[in-house]
Computed example of a mutant assay.
Amino acid sequence: MFMSIALALHVLAVVVWVGGMFFAHQALRPAAVDTLEPPLRLTLWVATFKRFFPWVWLCVIVILVTGLWMMTQFPKAIYIHSMMGLGIIMMLLFMHVFFAPYNKLKKAVASESWPEGGKALGQIRMFVGINTVIGIVTIIVATAGRYFI
């Protein structure tokens, strides 16, 4: 019973985090670039991250707790250890984004320093792109790993 709950929470957290990154990187970013001038675009991103990042923190906690628990249930499953390693890399990248370029973006927007804000947003975009790819690879490992690893 607990495994079903843990797995469901784990997958939901992954869907929210990776799906949110995919949406932001592949849909929202191009739409914002095509339609908004830098001041509005950067303000939109600060407002978006302000709403999305608390969800990511919750997802990180849920994924970490449920992932560690699953590792205790299947200690020899290499694909679960692979997921955990990739997940930790993703978590560290997110923490870097949250504590470094996101703070720079918020300060730049507050002081209307649009070039600095654009630079910070470019860093965030790069790390979100990397994390999205790692997230997709992790999903592949999660769904197909037991058959290949």
Rank of each mutant, 00 (worst) to 15 (best):
M1A: 08
F2E: 11
M3W: 08
M3G: 06
I5G: 01
I5Y: 10
L7I: 08
L7H: 08
L9E: 05
L9W: 07
L9F: 12
L12N: 08
A13F: 02
A13E: 03
A13D: 04
V16S: 04
V18D: 06
G19R: 06
G19K: 05
G20K: 02
M21G: 09
M21P: 00
F22G: 08
F23V: 11
A24Y: 03
H25T: 14
Q26C: 08
Q26S: 11
A27M: 13
A27V: 15
R29S: 04
R29I: 06
P30A: 08
P30H: 02
P30G: 05
P30F: 06
A32E: 07
V33I: 11
L36K: 04
E37W: 04
L40P: 00
L40F: 09
L40V: 05
R41L: 15
L42C: 10
T43I: 02
T43C: 05
T43Y: 01
T43P: 02
T43W: 03
L44H: 02
V46G: 02
V46P: 00
V46I: 07
T48D: 04
T48C: 07
T48S: 12
K50Q: 11
F52A: 13
F52P: 00
F53I: 01
F53Y: 14
W55G: 15
V56C: 03
V60H: 02
V60Q: 04
V62H: 00
I63H: 01
V65F: 03
T66G: 02
T66L: 00
G67V: 03
G67W: 04
W69H: 00
W69Q: 01
W69D: 00
W69P: 01
T72Q: 12
Q73R: 13
F74K: 06
K76A: 13
K76Q: 13
A77H: 10
Y79T: 02
Y79A: 10
Y79G: 04
I80F: 12
H81I: 01
H81W: 15
H81M: 06
H81Y: 11
M83L: 03
M84P: 03
G85V: 09
L86G: 08
G87F: 03
G87V: 01
I88T: 05
I88W: 04
I88Y: 01
I89P: 04
I89A: 15
M90V: 05
M91C: 13
L93I: 15
L93R: 03
M95C: 05
M95P: 00
M95L: 14
H96F: 14
H96K: 11
F98R: 14
A100Q: 14
Y102Q: 11
Y102T: 09
K104T: 13
K104G: 10
A108D: 10
A110S: 02
A110D: 12
S111F: 05
E112H: 13
E112V: 07
E112I: 04
E112L: 11
S113M: 09
S113P: 00
W114N: 11
G117A: 10
G117H: 09
G118V: 05
G118E: 15
K119L: 12
A120F: 09
A120E: 02
L121I: 10
L121P: 10
I124D: 13
R125F: 14
R125Y: 13
R125M: 13
M126R: 14
F127K: 08
F127W: 13
V128R: 03
N131T: 13
N131R: 05
T132E: 05
I134A: 09
G135I: 12
T138M: 12
I140M: 12
I140G: 08
V141N: 06
G145E: 07
Y147L: 06
F148V: 15
F148T: 15
I149P: 01
I149F: 15
